[in-house]
Design a protein around this nucleic acid. Structure first.
Lengths: 366, 366
DNA sequence: AGACCGCGTCGAAGCGCTTCGACTCCGCGA
DNA sequence: TCGCGGAGTCGAAGCGCTTCGACGCGGTCT
C-alpha cells in the first residue's frame, strides 16, 4: 500500500478525521425502537406491534407511532432479527468461481436476478465464492449470517449431501444426480429436447438425430437422460426417423459423428445437439465437410443452465433454453417459500423457450 | 409456478417435510456459547475471554474450552456481533447495475476480488444492486446489515454527498468530482498518461498526441485532467513535441481528429488515447485513412477503472491500466482499516501497469 | 347489578454475546 | 502475621427487538 499515490488534503497524514472507530461522523446515532417509543409516548412493545400489526393497536396510537418513526428516521436494526428468531433477511448466493473464470458472465446474470428477486421479498444477498470446500457452506450455516442458501450449479461435487445436513433451507440451481431431500430448479431439458424436435418437424424435417455428451444413451448426466427421453418421445409421437449419437467434446469426435450422420440413410436433415461444448465443434465439422447450415442441415441446441460449461454459444444457434433471470427468480421464490414453512417440490423444472435463430430452416427440398 | 414441471417423490404434493418454519431438519440446534460453557464447566464469560484472549485465562481452562468448542462444533453466531458493537463482519458491495447490462463482466471481476479480499479479513460481502436511489444506500446504512460499503463507479450521480452523510465507513471505487470527506481508490490516470508517453518515447517516437474525451483540455472529468497533466509532464520532461486533441465519442469526430493529426507537422507517430469509447473509433478512422497500426502509427490507451463505459476494448491495444482485482482488493483494504479506526488517505491512486500489446511499435523510420 | 369479555396497552423476559465490576484465591513483601 | 495485588474466574447488565402474559377499562350479557 505504501506504493500508492496519495492525493488530497490528507496527503501529509494530517488527521482531519475524528478518529473514532468507524471513521466518519455518525449523524444517525442509531435510533432504536426505544427512542421511537419515547418520542411517541408509548411502550417499546407497542411500537413493535404497531409496526408489525401482530396485535390490534388503536388507529390513534398507530398514527403517533408512524409519525415518530418518520420524524426520527427510524429503521429497524437488521441484525436484531438475526437472533430474535425472525431471521436476518439475508440469502446467501453460493457460486463456486475463481478469478478469471469464464463463467463470470453467467454467474453475474444469476446474481442480478437473484438479488432483484430477493429484494422483492425484502431480503438481501450475501455473495459466497470460491468456497467449494465444506467449510464455506458450514460457515454460512453455523455462523448464520444468512437464513438460507442458493447454490449455483456444480452438481458433481460433494455438496448435495452437505446441503442436506446443513440444517438451513437451500435451493440448488442445477440437477444433481440424486436430488432426494434437496430443492432444485433447472431447465426442463426433457421438454427442451421435445421442443427442438417439434421445431424441426414443423420445419418439415422427417429424419432427425440427437448428438450429445458421451453417455447420452446410457445412464449419464441427469440432463443427458432427460434430453434423450424428450427427444425420443417427440420423435416417436411425430413419426420421425431418429437416431442418437454420443459425442465427446473433441474436434476429432465431432468430425467422426458428423461423417457418420452424413452417411446415414435416410440422412438426417435436422440435428439436435445437447452439451454446449459440442455445438460449436459439430457445426465446424459439418462446415468442413461442405455442409451449409441451415441450408443443408438444421441444427438446434439444448442449453442446460449454462453454469458448468463456457456459456459462449455462437449467437446464431437456435436453442431451447431458460434465461438465467428466470432460474434465479424461481430459486429465490422457492427459497422464500421454504423459509415460510411452505412445502415445495423437490425439483422444479422450468419450461424452456425456443429461441429461433439462424441455424435452422425448412427442410432442404431433396 | 403452476406452470413449472414438478418432478420427484413429492410431485403429488404429499408432505414429506416436517413443515417447521425453516423447512428442513436442523441437525445443529444452534449451539451457543452457554452450551460450550456448560460443557466445559465454566461461565459463559470465561468462554468468551478464553476465545478472544481479552483477559488472562489459565492454560488449563483454555484447553477445556477449546475442547468443548471442538466437540460441540460451536461457531459464534454472526448476528450477535452485529449489535454487540463488534460489527457484523459484513461489507456491502454496491454496484449500480441493471439486468443485461454490458458492464456485468466488469462488475463480476470487482465482485470476485472484493469477496476474496473481504474473506481474507474475515468479512462477508453483501451484494447491493440497482439501488441508484438514495434508498438503497440508506437501507444498508440504517438497517445495518453491513458494517461498511464499497461503492462501484458512477461518480457523476448524487451519491458522494449521500455517502458522506451515511455515518458508515465507505470506499468509492472511482473518482468523483469532489472527493472531500470520502475515501476513493482508482487508477492513477496521471501516471497512466505518463507511462504511455514514456513507453512511446522508449520506442523512439519524438512527436506524440493525446486524444481524449471532449473536455480534455478544460476542466472536464477528473480523469481527463489527470491524464492531461501526466501526458504533458512526461512529454515535457522527455523533450517530445506534443499536442492535445479533444474528441467526442462519435465516428465522425474520430475521423476528423485522425485527419487533423495526419496533417500536423511534425506528424505525430505515437498517439495516447483516453476514454475507451474513443479508442476503437480512432483506430478505425486511422485504418480507413490508410494508416497501418502499429507500423505507421503507434496507439496506447489509458483505461480508467472501466466501470462507466463498456469494457470491451480491442484486446490488442497497448494500455496502461489497473486490474479490477487490485482495485477491489485495495478498496477492501482501506475499508477494513477505516473500520479499525485507522486513518486512511482521501484518495488512493493505484499505479497503472503498462500492458504491451500489438498497437505500439518502434517509430517508423522516416 | 354483577360477571364477563376483549380491545389496547404495558412490562418483562429472553435471544447470543461481550464486557465491566467484583470476588476468590494465592504468593509475596512488610 | 497481615495486607496487598495480581491472576483467574464469575455474575450481571445490556445491545435492539419480539413476544408472552397481564392488566385496566368500557361495554355486554344475564
Amino acid at each position: 500500500m505504501d506504493r500508492w499515490t496519495v492525493e488530497g488534503r490528507n496527503a501529509d497524514g494530517t488527521q482531519t478525521d475524528d478518529g473514532r472507530p468507524g471513521g466518519s461522523r455518525r449523524p444517525h446515532p442509531m435510533v432504536s425502537i426505544t427512542d421511537v417509543a419515547r418520542h411517541a409516548g408509548v411502550a417499546p412493545s407497542t411500537v413493535s406491534y404497531a409496526l408489525s400489526g401482530k396485535r390490534p393497536i388503536s388507529e390513534e396510537t398507530r398514527r403517533r407511532v408512524r409519525a415518530a418513526v418518520r420524524e426520527l428516521g427510524y429503521r429497524p436494526h437488521t441484525g436484531a432479527g438475526a437472533w430474535t428468531g425472525r431471521g436476518a433477511k439475508v440469502l446467501a448466493l453460493v457460486a463456486p468461481l475463481r478469478a478469471g473464470d469464464a463463467r463470470a458472465q453467467t454467474v453475474m446474470a444469476y446474481a442480478l436476478s437473484v438479488v432483484a428477486a430477493a429484494r422483492g421479498h425484502d431480503h438481501d444477498v450475501l455473495l459466497i465464492m470460491r468456497e467449494e470446500s465444506e467449510d464455506g457452506l458450514r460457515r454460512v450455516a453455523d455462523g448464520a449470517p444468512a437464513d438460507a442458501l442458493i447454490v449455483l450449479g456444480a452438481p458433481r461435487n460433494a455438496r448435495p449431501p452437505l446441503l442436506r445436513s446443513l440444517g438451513r433451507p437451500s435451493v440448488l440451481i442445477g440437477s444433481p444426480a440424486d436430488p432426494t431431500g434437496l430443492t432444485c430448479v433447472d431447465l426442463d431439458s426433457g421438454a427442451a429436447g421435445e421442443l427442438c424436435v417439434e421445431h424441426l418437424a414443423e420445419l418439415g424435417h422427417r429424419t432427425v438425430a440427437l448428438v450429445g455428451a458421451p453417455p447420452v444413451s446410457l445412464g449419464g448426466t441427469v440432463h443427458a437422460q432427460r434430453v434423450l427421453r424428450g427427444f425420443a418421445a417427440a420423435a416417436g409421437r411425430l413419426g420421425l426417423s431418429s437416431s442418437v449419437h454420443p459425442c465427446p467434446a473433441s474436434p476429432a469426435a465431432a468430425r467422426a459423428v458428423a461423417e457418420g450422420l452424413l452417411r446415414e440413410r435416410p440422412a438426417p436433415t435436422g440435428v439436435v445437439v445437447h452439451d454446449e461444448g459440442v455445438v460449436r465443434l459439430l457445426i465446424d465439422a459439418f462446415e468442413t465437410l461442405g455442409q451449409r447450415i441451415p441450408d443443408d442441415l438444421s441444427v438446434a441446441a439444448v442449453r442446460p443452465a449454462g453454469l458448468l460449461t463456457d456459456a459462449r454459444l455462437p449467437l446464431s444457434v437456435t436453442s431451447a433454453e431458460v434465461p438465467a433471470a428466470q432460474l434465479g427468480a424461481a430459486a429465490v421464490d422457492l427459497l422464500i417459500r421454504k423459509l415460510n414453512g411452505t412445502h415445495v417440490p423437490e425439483t422444479a423444472l422450468l419450461p424452456p423457450r425456443l429461441t429461433h435463430r439462424a441455424s435452422t430452416s425448412d427442410r432442404p427440398r431433396s
